[in-house]
Structure formats: C-alpha cells, structure tokens
C-alpha cells in the first residue's frame, strides 16, 4: 500500500506542475495574442486550468466541498466566454 500511495503522491505533484505550467503558457498567449479571439481562448483555457487545479487540490486534501467549487467555476467560465464572444460579435451582450 505504501508504494501505491507514493506513486499517487508523485502523480499529484506532476498534475499540479502540469496545470501550473499550462496556466503560465496560457497567460503568455493572453499577453501576446494578436487577435481578440486568441485572448478569449486563452482566458477560457485559464479558467479550465483553474478548474483542474481545484479538482487536484480536492484529491490532495480529500475534502468533498471542492466539488461544488469546481462546478461553479465551470459554469462561470462558460458564461463569461460566451459573454465576451457575444460582445465582440454583436457589440452588446443581452439584446
């Protein structure tokens, strides 16, 4: 059991590192991004990476409350992406 737990700890550390690296790379694309679409896409990817960070944090601490947090982040991320895209497309969010 100890070997399996050690493998799980290493996998958790690798997942944290991969999500943090993905967050940093999306932030670089958010700063560089030549068009508005790239910036919206980078923000969407950052929200999804943050969702993954919350999920991995919930596995690490073994607390069930992180499920609600990640569900809320998923919904808000989708709504904000659609709102930004609609603002660029139509000049207005709710017509």
């Amino acid at each position: 059991m100890t070997a399996a737990t050690g493998v799980m700890e290493i996998a958790l550390i690798i997942a944290f590192l991969a999500l943090a690296l993905g967050q940093i790379m999306s932030m670089i694309r958010l700063v560089l991004g030549p068009t508005v679409g790239d910036r919206i896409l980078a923000l969407d990817t950052m929200v999804i990476n943050g969702l993954g960070l919350v999920v991995v944090l919930g596995i690490h601490q073994g607390i069930q409350i992180y499920f609600e947090v990640s569900l809320l982040i998923a919904m808000l991320g989708f709504v904000s992406t659609v709102a930004l895209a609609r603002f660029v497309l139509r000049g207005d969010i709710i017509e």
Partner: peptide, 17 residues
C-alpha cells in the same frame, strides 16, 4: 488517470502557445 490528464493539459497549453 491523473498522469494522462496532466499530459493532455500540458499538450493543450503547448499547442495554444
């Protein structure tokens, strides 16, 4: 599954960049 998921996250971020 954690390792596969983190690999896909990393590949997606590299592709975005």
């Amino acid at each position: 599954s954690l390792l596969v998921g983190s690999g896909f996250v990393l590949v997606g971020a590299i592709g975005l960049l």
